[in-house]
Nucleic acid binder design. Structure first.
Length: 261
DNA sequence: ATGGTAGAGCTTCTA
């Protein structure tokens, strides 16, 4: 079961690039972030025609997440628990059943800039809510994949130029500590685990500005976090870096993990 | 300190 995450930065602008990648990579399931539209305006038929079932949790103009899955989506829940007043569409869960039942948690973690400030406070509060939900997911003692755009650079090696990020909400000590606190519950960072002693990267995001892609000035902020029961099923994982060089690309590229599930 | 680019949707915000 090939499970992927892709921050597409606007579904309307990315129908072509997303469709091309789906054809080439053929994931069984992909969680999308930054669809930037309401549920009714998601181009559902286009992806249903490609054989995908849909669960959408959208919002006008900003944020918005979705799941495309070749297997039926069961027990879909929308929104991160812990704050009924939070109206930002950043979190969705579902279960898919192949050889094993796998719980999927797709997320778009707040950016948090500028820091300090209210947006950074929201980021840290959101991460505390995620920590609580992540603990409940581990307690299920089943294969769980918690994946998406975490907007966290975990370590200096996850940036081409870490010095450029020292005052950024993606790399501040409090952000990294909050991510570490969740990871230390028992999650496996699939891309890190695949290359534990690599010197840099693999990167998953290159800014549209400043020729970041041309200079390979990237960061690793899209993560695949695996429960122990999911980690035991991994057969391969990767980053589809070449997508960033395509026509009308997102600033992120797809990340994926293949499970014997 | 600023602006560089991109998307959505509207003349600005978010990233």
């Amino acid at each position: 079961m090939k499970i992927a995450s892709f921050n597409i930065n606007g579904i309307k602008a990315r129908i072509g690039a997303l469709g091309d990648w789906l054809q080439a990579a053929a994931p069984d399931l992909v969680v999308l972030q930054e669809i930037k539209t309401v549920d009714e305006n998601f181009p559902a038929a286009h992806f249903e025609d490609m054989g995908y079932n849909l669960a959408v949790h959208g919002q006008k103009s900003f944020n918005g997440v979705a799941i495309l899955s070749k297997l039926p989506l069961e027990d879909v829940t929308r929104g991160l628990p812990g704050d009924d007043a939070d109206e930002q569409a950043r979190y969705i869960e579902a279960t898919v059943v192949g050889d094993h039942a796998v719980r999927i948690a797709g997320l778009y973690l707040p950016n948090g800039n500028p820091a300090p400030g209210p947006k950074y406070d929201y980021k840290l509060a959101w991460m505390e809510r995620l920590r609580l939900r992540a603990a409940d997911l581990l307690a299920l003692e089943m294969p769980v994949v918690m994946l998406g755009d975490f907007n966290i650079i975990p370590q200096p090696r996850d940036a081409a130029e870490p010095a450029e990020w020292v005052k950024d909400a993606l790399f501040l000590p409090d952000s990294r500590a909050a991510f570490r606190r969740i990871a230390a519950q028992g999650w496996t960072d699939a891309l890190r685990d695949a290359d534990p002693f690599g010197r840099r990267g693999p990167f998953t995001f290159w800014d549209f500005q400043g020729g970041a892609w041309r200079r390979d000035n990237g960061i690793r902020i899209d993560h695949l976090m695996l429960s122990p029961q999911a980690a035991d099923l991994v057969t391969s994982s990767g980053v589809d870096r070449e997508v960033r060089a395509g026509e009308k690309p997102s600033d992120h590229v797809p990340v994926w993990v293949d499970l014997a599930a």
